[in-house]
């Protein structure tokens, strides 16, 4: 983990450094017109932060649901793939890998059961998508 935190630190330091250098080098000529919001040269009519379209909110909710569901699939994909890779070359692996290891330890009954479970999960995902679609979340008019 250390390299990643170091990298984050370096990147953040670069950002701060850029701002500081630019502050030191640049000129400073403030003015009342310069401080106004840019609106193609017109005087702004009202506050910018007004109500906006509800669809953005619905979209964010739909995204949240699907993204979390996708996250559930990552562990399965890794475990399934590892078991499959060891199947391709049984001589190279000494112990069962991935899902096979889970089966060998008695955590699940068989790989078929997991496969069926994942398929049910996919069907649920598809049903959710169909529901959102029928509700018109993806319709932008």
């Amino acid at each position: 983990m250390m390299p990643i935190f170091l990298f984050l630190l370096c990147a953040a330091a670069l950002c701060v450094g850029l701002l500081v250098v630019a502050n030191l080098l640049g000129p400073r000529r403030p003015g009342p017109v310069k401080r106004m919001p840019y609106e193609s040269g017109m005087d702004p009519v009202h506050e910018a932060r007004r109500r906006f379209n509800i669809r953005f909110y619905l979209l964010a909710i739909a995204f949240l649901v699907f993204d979390v569901e996708l996250l559930f699939l990552y562990p399965w994909a890794v475990a399934n793939g590892a078991a499959h890779a060891s199947q391709a070359d049984p001589a190279a692996v000494s112990a069962p890998q991935g899902l096979d290891a889970a089966v060998a330890e008695g955590l699940v009954e068989s790989r078929g059961l997991i496969f069926a479970g994942v398929m049910v999960f996919f069907i649920l995902l598809t049903l959710g998508l169909v529901y959102d679609w029928r509700k018109g979340i993806f319709r932008w008019r």
Partner: peptide, 12 residues
């Protein structure tokens, strides 16, 4: 050129 521009923050 970016560094020699004014580091400006609008008022609003």
């Amino acid at each position: 050129k970016f560094f020699f521009k004014e580091e400006f923050t609008p008022g609003h």
